[in-house]
Design a protein around this nucleic acid. Structure first.
Lengths: 168, 168
DNA sequence: ACAAACTTTCAATATTATTTGAAACTTCAG
DNA sequence: CTGAAGTTTCAAATAATATTGAAAGTTTGT
């Protein structure tokens, strides 16, 4: 396979992969493009290479920056803005974990707290089952939360070295 | 909060949560409904409680069964089929992890293998960076894969006991 | 074999999510 | 201050995805 073809395939697949995880295709594709671009690229570059509109590129790059996966940068002598993606996959992954935890897991756990505090007869089968389910999710979520916290704070080498041994 | 209200809130939130993770809203809602139903329920029950069509319920229940999260069951004396969800959240989570690993992570790693085997000059900056990125993803993915394998095979008690200590 | 009860399928339709593009806004050099 | 270069916004258009519902298929009891 030739480099250009491989790049295209990576961008397409990363985009498809994203859609399975609730990330919009274009955002994932822009991320992919930036991941395989050694040098900073501009909005116009992205527009051209992915054939998407200026507005779309602008919005999605903004979101990627918001996630902490992409940075603005400038090139001396150029008026335009350029962008680069974090290339270290460990950092990319921990950033994503951190953000999704904050945006989705944490609020979900807060909700479980509310929901397991319903008023009503604990003898009622429905109520009993409901409270148990909510608490089960809460307990599990808290464990996952703790685990991910440590994971995110850990250094890659420590993780790969000590922890991976643990994971056989 | 009253039980009925709490149930509804849970179903809605589980549905919204699902959409952020690439799972369609109705499928997640049906799952939620089954999670909080102590007894098996029929397609008609789901239709009524969620106000969705028979076809929709049928398709989404089928998919939930395919994922291993829901089971068909029958009630003596009843002609209809009834359904129950796995209630143990640990099992639910490991099932989902197993399935998504198989459906998404494994194929992605296979692709990375192909893509890091491009022909071309390793001196070329673009090619070098590309190969490095692909291998980085592959390495990370393999680690995650291994870790999730152990997690999935582990027993909850072992996990919570021994491993959680490790995760401070 | 018949028909009632129930389940499945899928083309048409509705809904939701994404994308466009042109106008408004900002920045900067001269 | 002016206008060219660049960026952002967002209502409208489009595309992707999910849902409906009626017809076809299946199972079961008599």
């Amino acid at each position: 396979m030739k480099l250009t073809e491989a790049k295209q395939k990576f961008i397409d697949s990363w985009g498809a992969f994203g859609t399975h995880w609730g990330i919009n295709r274009t955002m994932a594709q822009i991320h992919a493009l930036l991941l395989v671009s050694p040098d900073p690229i501009s909005q116009d570059d992205v527009m051209e290479q992915l054939s998407v509109s200026r507005g779309n590129v602008n919005m999605n790059i903004r979101e990627l920056i918001d996630w902490g996966l992409v940075e603005r940068t400038s090139i001396p002598g150029e008026r335009k803005e350029f962008f680069v993606a974090e290339k270290d996959i460990w950092k990319v992954a921990t950033t994503i974990i951190k953000e999704r935890k904050r945006r989705e897991l944490d609020p979900m756990l807060k909700l479980m707290d509310q929901l397991s505090a319903i008023e009503g007869d604990k003898k009622d089968k429905e109520a009993k089952q409901f409270i148990e389910t909510m608490q089960g999710i809460k307990r599990f979520g808290n464990q996952a939360d703790k685990m991910l916290d440590v994971l995110v704070k850990a250094d890659e080498h420590w993780f790969v070295g000590s922890l991976m041994k643990f994971f056989k």
